[in-house]
Amino acid sequence: MLEVESLVARYGAVEALHGVSLEVGSGEAVAVVGPNGAGKTTLLRTISGLVRAASGSVRIDGRTVGRTAAHRVARLGVSHVPEGRAILSPLTVKDNLLMGGYRLPGAEIQGRMEEMIELFPVLGRRLDSLGGVLSGGEQQMLAIARGLMARPRLLMIDEPSMGLAPRIVGDVLDALHRVVATGTAVLVSEQNAGLALEVADRAYVMVVGNVVASGRSEELEGNLLETYLA
């Protein structure tokens, strides 16, 4: 589904990604874990076209998209839930969901919204609430549901636990498990390695713009601290 090879990205003269490679299979859940500043957000932004790749390649189903505009990447079936959630605060929950499904045929929108409410029941109780008054956990679920509205083949989620209380993180973890169970390919970026490894089949560890380890989640879990310190 997704192949990233030797990806380099820069902000001006500062190189943020130093030849990163990874892949996500169809229907697979993959995590990118690492400390703050590791380059995880830049990686997702480069895949989705929000940051222009300096070199290397990004392929969706074999099609190279590393220098493709973000809206064209979205049309290929990639949804990006950004760091900070980017909820449209003045709009209702329902309108946020409609924004996510703007490319669906009109006859499908209501049915897809009902699927999202079934996946995230709390949203069904808050459809007429403004996005800005939701709790952090509710906003994260709304952001994920909005990303899923377009029926993506790959859903990328950046730092889903950021700024949430530990109790709420558990709710988000449950939500991610439900998303994975739908068969959508998922690439999740997280500082909270425990959460990410619990959701993902495989994981990549990033430090300072480099992938320093990769493997099955259960294989990485035992020596993750040692990898970070190294």
Rank of each mutant, 00 (worst) to 15 (best):
residue 29 A to R: 08
residue 154 L to S: 00
residue 86 A to Q: 14
residue 32 V to A: 12
residue 26 S to C: 11
residue 100 G to V: 06
residue 68 T to Q: 06
residue 118 E to F: 03
residue 113 M to S: 05
residue 66 G to K: 08
residue 15 E to P: 11
residue 7 L to E: 08
residue 107 A to W: 11
residue 143 A to L: 07
residue 122 V to Y: 14
residue 215 G to Q: 01
residue 184 T to C: 14
residue 230 A to T: 13
residue 53 A to C: 00
residue 25 G to D: 13
residue 230 A to H: 15
residue 126 R to G: 06
residue 197 L to C: 07
residue 64 T to M: 12
residue 200 A to Q: 04
residue 228 Y to P: 12
residue 141 M to L: 12
residue 68 T to D: 01
residue 32 V to M: 05
residue 35 P to N: 12
residue 213 A to Y: 03
residue 141 M to A: 10
residue 25 G to M: 13
residue 220 L to T: 05
residue 214 S to Y: 14
residue 98 L to V: 11
residue 22 L to K: 06
residue 217 S to V: 01
residue 164 L to K: 13
residue 154 L to R: 02
residue 55 S to R: 12
residue 124 G to A: 14
residue 47 I to D: 01
residue 166 P to I: 07
residue 227 T to K: 11
residue 127 L to H: 07
residue 2 L to R: 08
residue 160 P to L: 01
residue 140 Q to W: 15
residue 191 Q to T: 08
residue 200 A to L: 00
residue 71 H to C: 03
residue 130 L to H: 11
residue 144 I to A: 08
residue 66 G to P: 02
residue 46 T to G: 04
residue 178 R to I: 04
residue 22 L to T: 04
residue 36 N to W: 10
residue 157 I to S: 02
residue 153 R to D: 11
residue 90 P to W: 07
residue 161 S to L: 02
residue 34 G to C: 02
residue 13 A to W: 12
residue 200 A to C: 00
residue 57 S to G: 10
residue 5 E to S: 15
residue 212 V to F: 04
residue 190 E to A: 00
residue 125 R to M: 12
residue 1 M to W: 04
residue 136 G to I: 13
residue 200 A to R: 05
residue 188 V to T: 05
residue 86 A to W: 12
residue 32 V to E: 02
residue 59 R to Y: 03
residue 99 M to K: 03
residue 47 I to S: 02
residue 214 S to E: 13
residue 36 N to S: 06
residue 76 L to I: 04
residue 137 G to T: 09
residue 60 I to M: 08
residue 92 T to H: 01
residue 204 Y to D: 01
residue 103 R to N: 11
residue 66 G to N: 09
residue 185 A to L: 02
residue 159 E to L: 00
residue 15 E to H: 14
residue 5 E to T: 13
residue 189 S to T: 12
residue 115 E to L: 10
residue 109 I to C: 06
residue 77 G to V: 08
residue 211 V to Q: 03
residue 128 D to H: 15
residue 88 L to H: 04
residue 28 E to L: 12
residue 89 S to I: 13
residue 155 L to G: 06
residue 178 R to F: 02
residue 190 E to K: 01
residue 134 L to G: 02
residue 219 E to A: 05
residue 125 R to Y: 09
residue 182 T to E: 14
residue 174 D to R: 06
residue 43 L to D: 00
residue 2 L to I: 09
residue 116 M to G: 00
residue 37 G to K: 09
residue 155 L to Y: 07
residue 221 E to N: 06
residue 134 L to W: 12
residue 137 G to F: 07
residue 219 E to Q: 00
residue 63 R to K: 14
residue 200 A to P: 00
residue 94 K to L: 15
residue 186 V to A: 05
residue 107 A to F: 09
residue 87 I to A: 09
residue 173 L to N: 08
residue 221 E to P: 02
residue 166 P to C: 12
residue 164 L to D: 15
residue 54 A to T: 10
residue 192 N to V: 07
residue 215 G to C: 07
residue 29 A to I: 11
residue 188 V to M: 07
residue 18 H to D: 00
residue 49 G to A: 01
residue 213 A to V: 10
residue 187 L to V: 00
residue 138 E to C: 08
residue 135 S to P: 10
residue 163 G to W: 10
residue 25 G to V: 09
residue 120 F to P: 04
residue 224 L to Q: 09
residue 82 P to M: 05
residue 40 K to F: 06
residue 23 E to K: 15
residue 91 L to H: 04
residue 16 A to L: 06
residue 157 I to N: 10
residue 148 L to D: 09
residue 77 G to W: 05
residue 218 E to N: 13
residue 26 S to E: 15
residue 212 V to W: 03
residue 204 Y to A: 03
residue 11 Y to R: 09
residue 82 P to G: 01
residue 169 V to F: 04
